[in-house]
Write a protein that binds this DNA or RNA. Sequence first.
DNA 1: GAGTAGATCCTCT
DNA 2: GAGGATCTACTCA
Length: 206
Amino acid sequence: MKKLPVSFYQRSNVVQIAKELLGKILVTKWNGIETSGRIVEVEAYNGVVDKASHAAGGRRTNRNEVMYGEGGVSYVYLCYGIHHLFNVVTNRQETPHAILVRALEPVKGIDVMLERTGKRKPDHTLTKGPGNVSKALGISFKLHTGISLLSKELFIAEDDFKLNKKDIVATPRIGVDYADEDAKLPYRFFIKGNPFVSGSKQVNSR
DNA sequence: GAGTAGATCCTCT
DNA sequence: GAGGATCTACTCA
């Protein structure tokens, strides 16, 4: 298992990067406690031309400032006062591309995730949906936004897992109805048939 | 099983 | 002062 290099993030095609992130391992290691999961669902946010992005139309605020920085750092944001959303910033400086990690398949530290989320046993709700992902991994918007994805506490790695191209499904994004026609763009990608993908309810029939 | 409303707090206008 | 890249529970069929 090896970390993805900075060059992986600093490319210009955010949609392409989003697709390639599927099947990769997201690892957090706060205070020596390691939790990780395979990325099974992402959404691409295509910078200033994307109305669903926080950077739509060149909006630039304190909150989304990290999106304008170098690719390869995290962008964590608190939504609805409850949910922490974990994003990966891509591309170069001044280009606010980002990829939202929407769902993981738990790999390591499942018991820790259960504790963090207050759940009894692992099921597909543990890391399904961006709010749950950051909760399970212990990601907090205050502490963990703007830090490098190549640090020893937070990184994305790849192993031998190979994803068949036909197992990648593209659909419109979720929760961005306000973005008019951009809400229909097929910028959401997930691994076909994976029970940890959000939206596909009760895929596993116990 | 499907649809709807409420929770809850930080950020920007 | 309003609203948001969501989730959950509860109601109704």
